[in-house]
Structures are given as structure tokens and as C-alpha cells.
Design a protein around this nucleic acid. Structure first.
Lengths: 248, 248
DNA sequence: CGTTTCAATATGTATATACATAATCGCCAT
DNA sequence: ATGGCGATTATGTATATACATATTGAAACG
């Protein structure tokens, strides 16, 4: 009814008001319209603007605060934070969940898919001793409009034959592999790197900008399954891992 | 109601009910008490258990869903999700051991040592709510002739009073703290960064060269102990972490 | 016997309200 | 002036309530 009537776009898109406030503000921040340090409207002002209750506004703002986009100060208001703090967890690395945890729409796009006989480099990455068929995939993960991560993956077709039949147009290789192939061991390598031209191009960042690189090799019962390299723009990504000694 | 009365340790720490529900459930899941697929209590059951309104329960569950720990299905209930955490193993690394493993001679050099009352930034890094004395240390770790890592550390003197008497000229803060302070929890943040001039100078690399930054916060029994930031030149360092799925 | 319909149920979203808490501003007294 | 103190203000948390929506299970129907 009159609740959703703040001029809808002609899509008739029926997203929740809460989502609408959230993305409105996020857009303002990410587009730079509201620079870091800028004070965003008070809850009661947003309440008036969107013609809704304070609880609804509050929930949206709390969410933005938890995502690290804004900082809230009692009696003073809410302020756009310095860009940082995109949080992710090292544990299982499902990019969709990472992105959605930030409250951003997730999108996946396959860039390339090549089936070939493994060369020396492929074998080194996968840890194979003998040549064999491999599938090389390159894809992009988006958070909203921006590229979030570039994925470069090798799949050992000797270990996962069914992958040869999959196009990976609609599903990312990570989720596809999970559940299909029980993994027994994995190794992460994490490092920093300057973006070369190809990477900078794909991620839409400056050439030689610093990137965080996470590589993972996975084995299943001694057989190499896959090698994947995720490349994140430095400013958009921080890995977070929390430990407690021994017992979980 | 017996649930709510666990009542405060003598810190008077009064966390919100919402936080309490959240961590209760998270603990159940992460400890394995509630396995993947398990149906967690309905909102109205939790409402009864915690003697609170549905909104409060709903907020907590929504948050868990957004974090990817549970999945919510209308009419059916909420269920623990599949991908259980692999206990992340990035051990607290000792730089001396890293360097010596490379077969290079290790050397440590303290650059600065300042005792001060914690400012806002110090408190943010350590996670302190009230001001108090802290020790700020800056040191360099060498591998052979070359700087291997720059260390910037804060020690909470309220938690580790003896550190105030130590000069840290001959022993690095890391090894000094280990063994003296049993830690109960740690959080790592890993990211890439371009070196600013100060860092480039200390590490003897080009300005704006990519660096790997590892930050760690450590707590002992709820008390913040130390915050440390290691900055490595990108080309000299890769973190390696190896997991085996935590059997459960 | 299969299909359609409908009511029951659990979650999703929103409202109005209330009181707590922290930070700030301005007033007042020294 | 100036240092302290109370009033004001914005956020933090919780409540009770309402209705929407998706899904399920069972009843009604052809």
C-alpha cells in the first residue's frame, strides 16, 4: 500500500524497504557521493524521508555499521568510515557468502574455459607427476557492480571426470566441486602481488596496484583435485581468521 | 529462564540478549553439538527459552543466516548449514624460525619503544574500552642482510605489567610474550597494501611496492593483550596454511 | 486415484512504543 | 574564564502487535 510508494522504478520491483534504504545509502557511499567522514542523515530524518518507522531505518544502519561501511556515534550521528574492512573468513572460502554477508548483490561470470593436456606449469600447480587432461577456468566474481575477485582455476580431469561435461556458465566451480568431491586436505598460500595489466584490466583497478592472492590446492585421497587462485584488489579485501587454541 | 540467568561474571559485563542468543547458537554449531542438517529450535521455542520477544530471536537468527551458518526455510524451520568450519590453522608464527628455516641468519633490531597512555587509535587496535598504559614497539627482523619484516606492536600494560620493565633490545616481543601470557584467543587480519614511504624506507624496498600485512590481536581471558602488525615485502613472503577437514 | 484447494505454520517485514545509555552542549556557580 | 553538572539528543535494545508470504500437509473434489 502507501508504504512502498516512494517512487518505484517502473520495474514494480518489490524489494523490501529495508533493502532499499540499505542499498540507497551504500550506493551513496561507494559512489563517493558521501565521502569518508560525511555525516549521514539522522535516523529521524531518514524516517521522514522514507516514511517509515525508526526501527526499519535503525536495522538498515546497524547492518551498514556491522559491515564496516559506517560508524555510529551516540548523540553525534552516523559517519561514513574510511574505506577498509571488507571482512571475509579464511575457513571455507565461498565467495558468494562473503559477498552476500556484505549485503551486496552477488554475480558470477565465466570468462574462459579451456580443456587441455597438462603442461609443465599445470602439473606444478596441481602437484601432478604425469601429464593428463585438465580443465582451465577463469571467472570473475562481482559484488554489486564492482569486480570482487578474479578466479583462475585448474581442475584435474583424471580425478573429476564429470567436470569435463560442465560448462560452468551458471555455477561457479567452487560450489560445483564441493559436495561432489570430498576433499581430504587443502593447502593455502597467501601473498601480496602487484597487479599486472591483465589482472588490472579484469578487476578494473590500476596497473601495479597491490592485490591479495589466495591460492588453494586440494587433494582427495592423495589425488590432486584442483588448484585455484583468487586475486582480490587490496583495498576491497581483508582475510580474517579467528583461533582458539586446541579444542574448538 | 534458566538460560538467561548464567549471570555475569564479576565484570558486570552485561551483553545484550540478542548477542547472547547469537553466541549460544553459534557455539552449539561450531562445537558440533548441532551437526549440519540439524533443525534448530523454532523462533517461538527460543522465545520461550530466553523469555523474550520473537523480534529479538528473529534478529539473531537472521544474522546467523546472513553469516552463512544456518539456512532458514519458511514453514519448515531453520537448519544448520553444510560447510562446517575447518579449524583454521595459521599458527602463531615465530619469525626467527621462519627465517632460519630458509637457511638464512636471523637478526632482530628494536627501532623504537614508547610508553604512553592509550589514545583512541591504540584503543581501537587493542579493543580496549577505557584508556590505560600501553607500550608501543617498532622493530625489524632481518634475514641475512635484508630486512625481512617490519613489526609494529602494542602491548596492553594493564594486562602485562611486567612488559613495562623490559627494553626488548635483545629479545623480540613475540617470543617474550609467549609463555609469559597464556592466550585464549587470537584474530588475524591479512591484507595487501602498498608500502608508504616510511615502510619502504625501513624495509629497503621501492615506495608503493606491494606488501603483505598480517595483523594479530590476542586476548587472554577476555582481556586484550597485544596487537601486532607484521609488514612483509611481497616478494619475500608467502603464508602457508594447511588444513584437514575437522572430522565431526 | 490423482489433482486442486485450503488452512495451518514458520518465517519475513514493518509498525508504534518504551526505556537505557553515551556523548555533547550550554548554563551556572565558583 | 572555567570547570562541573544537568538537560538534550541520537543511538541501542527490547517489547507487543500486525499482516504478508512461502511451504507443507491434509481435506475436498473431479
Amino acid at each position: 500500500m502507501s508504504l512502498v510508494e516512494t517512487d518505484d522504478i517502473e520495474g514494480g520491483e518489490s524489494i523490501s524497504l529495508h533493502q532499499r534504504i540499505l542499498s540507497d545509502i551504500r550506493d551513496k557511499i561507494l559512489s563517493g557521493a558521501w565521502a569518508p567522514g560525511h555525516r549521514i542523515p539522522f535516523e529521524h530524518e531518514l524516517t521522514a524521508q522514507y516514511n517509515c518507522s525508526r526501527m526499519t531505518v535503525n536495522k538498515a544502519l546497524s547492518q551498514l555499521a556491522k559491515a564496516g561501511l559506517i560508524e555510529r556515534r551516540r548523540r553525534s550521528g552516523s559517519f561514513v568510515r574510511q574505506p577498509q574492512s571488507q571482512a571475509a573468513v579464511l575457513e571455507l572460502h565461498d565467495i558468494r557468502i562473503e559477498v552476500e554477508a556484505l549485503g551486496l548483490p552477488y554475480r558470477y561470470e565465466r570468462l574462459a574455459r579451456i580443456k587441455r593436456r597438462s603442461g609443465a606449469e599445470d602439473r606444478a600447480l596441481l602437484g601432478l607427476s604425469a601429464p593428463g587432461p585438465v580443465l582451465a577456468l577463469e571467472s570473475l566474481h562481482f559484488a554489486g557492480e564492482r569486480p570482487f575477485a578474479l578466479e583462475q582455476r585448474l581442475i584435474n580431469l583424471s580425478a573429476v571426470a564429470e567436470a569435463a561435461e560442465e560448462e560452468f556458465l551458471d555455477i561457479a566451480p567452487g560450489p560445483w566441486l564441493i559436495g561432489r568431491v570430498p576433499w581430504s586436505e587443502a593447502e593455502h598460500r597467501i601473498r601480496a602481488m602487484a597487479a599486472d595489466e591483465t589482472i588490472a584490466d579484469a578487476l578494473d583497478i590500476d596497473a601495479s596496484a597491490p592485490c591479495l592472492v589466495v591460492e588453494r590446492r586440494t587433494w582427495s585421497a592423495e589425488h590432486p583435485v584442483t588448484h585455484v587462485r583468487f586475486i582480490y584488489p587490496a583495498e576491497s579485501h581483508t582475510l580474517v581468521a579467528r583461533f582458539t587454541p586446541s579444542q574448538g
